[in-house]
Design a protein around this nucleic acid. Structure first.
Length: 286
DNA sequence: AGTGTATCCTGCAGGC
DNA sequence: TGCCTGCAGGATACAC
């Protein structure tokens, strides 16, 4: 899926075409991508005029002029495709929700695997919804000290912590793995064992990777496309993710693929040494 | 508290 | 060509 940089690219792309346009009707083609009753979803959104589309974490937030919202979590394969005619937009192979505009155009939510979800939010629900997510890693307020504090509160592997949307919003597997490589931290390192120096490197690495990926329009490995149909360019800048067996750009040793927490991670055995085993648990045989 | 597993789905690549 | 397995930018619920 779309992680933060892809959601950001999508939101920016939609802001080129959506503001001011009016939804005439909504057709839910796949009930399971809509949170709650499809009929009520369609009724709630019909007649609304688009304001500015925003992003929160990995979510694209379609905001209407009356401050009601549709939060789009794109899952693994969700796409938002604007079209100049009422039918599903160009390149939409698995349309799931079709928003038709009063000017004849449209916006298609397309999702091959249908892991994505569209949630309608009354204006009064926004704050509560947003509060479930952790801080935005690219916000000015996300300082090294803030990250260090989050790290210190968890013993879980740092990659797992970075993926936890309640702790930090918007980081997915690609950028978590990349940030760990840049920081020289093994993704399995217990978060609370990361010291000030490594923590500061992780903070810089994470923000740098995310910023660069935003500037590159995101990472296209398979399905991801910006609203204009363009692919991202950050896949060419990946240093660890997906590079199993290829030489590390720093030390030339082969990148290894490991699996934990149910997901692949990619590590350089030279630059990202295995964490030392933790202290023996109570009751362990010495 | 943290972790492994299964679940929701489809498509694609690779092995035989 | 077909059939199988494993894998995928995510999130959640469950049992240990």
């Amino acid at each position: 899926m779309p992680e933060l940089p892809e959601a950001e690219t999508i939101a920016r792309g939609l802001n080129m075409v959506l503001p001011g346009r009016v939804v005439r009707s909504v057709t839910v083609l796949r009930d399971d991508v809509v949170d709650g009753s499809p009929r009520r979803f369609a009724e709630a959104v019909s007649g609304k005029r688009f304001g500015t589309t925003e992003r929160r974490g990995k979510n694209v937030v379609l905001t209407f002029e009356d401050a009601t919202r549709v939060v789009v979590n794109l899952g693994m394969t969700g796409r938002l495709v604007p079209g100049s005619d009422p039918g599903p937009g160009p390149g939409s192979t698995h349309p799931a929700v079709l928003f038709q505009f009063s000017d004849g155009g449209s916006l298609t939510y397309d999702d091959v695997r249908r892991f994505g979800r569209l949630t309608h939010l009354p204006a009064s629900d926004w704050k509560r919804w947003s509060r479930r997510l952790g801080p935005e890693p690219l916000a000015r307020s996300f300082t090294g000290a803030r990250l260090q504090e989050i790290l210190s509160r968890s013993r879980s592997p740092v990659r797992s912590l970075l993926l936890d949307q309640r702790k930090i919003a918007g980081v997915g597997n690609i950028y978590a793995v990349e940030a760990c490589w840049f920081a020289g931290i093994h993704p399995r390192t217990a978060a609370n064992s990361i010291g000030a120096g490594s923590g500061a490197r992780l903070h810089r690495s994470l923000r740098r990777v995310l910023r660069r990926a935003v500037n590159a329009g995101g990472t296209t490995l398979r399905n991801y496309r910006a609203p204009d149909g363009n692919e991202g360019r950050f896949q060419r800048a990946l240093h660890a993710y997906g590079r199993e067996g290829q030489p590390c750009f720093r030390c030339r040793r082969g990148i290894e693929r490991i699996v934990f927490g149910g997901r692949s991670a990619f590590v350089c055995p030279g630059c990202q040494p295995e964490p030392a085993p933790g202290p023996a648990a109570r009751g362990d045989v010495p």
